[in-house]
């Protein structure tokens, strides 16, 4: 009984430790890595430019549906004037950081896990090591740094396009005075809401990209070999990243709300 419970627990503990070491090593490789700006640029392109369409599309639909649902509920109490507050606070505090992170995991994180997994599988990572190149520094460090920059930016874009979506459904479609909507938006959001928003975005970026890189990097230690190991690693990367995002969201919210 103890053994059946203990072994997965120990494995979980070991995995967490290894991932922590891996992340620390990646950051420690910053001064040792040459031509980091170039790699960073590529990572920003992968996580930023390439994921921009999905962020904008999901963002506008989230805003549209928030506007519709919010208007429907608030209309019952005759408080449509609060629609801007509802849409903006939902987006800034919760939906922006969480949905943007989930979308980025789906598009950039999964690709990252698969790419690094294949590089492990075809001995490219071993080749880097034999050349005296830090494989974490070359492959992971630029991605982690990019995540810290890109996730808050994507979240901000998600929130902005979402606010516009809320305006479209609330004002353009349902006839709320635009001035009422936008002034409610401006009144509702405070600096600490934005702090929460960006703290969440940065944390999610770091943790998801670290998880996806880690799963790819150690794809050979998981179940199966070859292509199956890579596919298993990618699945683990995406699933665990999403779970982590939602769990951390809860933790950060409770910490920041009760301060």
């Amino acid at each position: 009984m103890l053994a059946t419970l203990g072994r997965p627990f120990l494995r979980l503990l070991g995995g967490m430790g290894r991932m922590a070491c891996f992340t620390v090593r990646s950051f420690a490789a910053v001064p040792k890595t040459r031509r980091l700006p170039r790699r960073l640029l590529r990572a920003i392109f992968e996580q930023g430019t390439r994921c921009l369409p999905v962020i904008l599309i999901v963002g506008i639909f989230t805003g549209l549906v928030l506007g519709l649902q919010g208007h429907y509920v608030l209309n019952r109490f005759g408080s449509e004037s609060l629609l801007g507050a509802l849409v903006s606070l939902s987006l800034v505090r919760e939906l922006g950081p969480v949905l943007a992170a989930l979308m980025l995991v789906g598009q950039a994180g999964s690709a990252l896990a698969a790419e690094i997994g294949i590089q492990r599988n075809s001995e490219q990572i071993a080749a880097l090591e034999t050349m005296g190149v830090s494989s974490e520094g070359y492959l992971v460090t630029p991605r982690l740094l990019a995540a810290l920059i890109v996730f808050p930016m994507q979240t901000a874009l998600f929130v902005l396009i979402g606010l516009y979506g809320g305006y479209l459904s609330g004002s353009a479609m349902l006839g709320l005075e635009p001035g009422v909507y936008w002034s409610a938006v401006e009144k509702a959001v405070e600096a600490r809401d934005l702090t929460e928003c960006f703290v969440k975005a940065g944390t999610f970026g770091l943790i998801t990209i670290a998880m996806c890189s880690y799963q790819g990097f150690y794809a050979h230690l998981g179940h199966g070999t070859g292509a199956r190991a890579v596919s298993a690693a990618t699945t683990r990367a995406v699933v665990l990243s999403c779970v982590l995002v939602l769990a951390l969201d809860d933790v950060i919210t409770s910490f920041l709300l009760h301060r």
């Binding site: 640029l41 920059i149 994507q154 902005l160 401006e186 600096a191």
Partner: peptide, 29 residues
Amino acid sequence: KLELLAGLFVAIGIAAIAWLTIQLGAGAL
């Protein structure tokens, strides 16, 4: 091309963050 596209994203991203903080968080900042 890569540099341009990445740079474009960063510019848009900074603009978005700036707009959010100045326009919405302005009350306290």
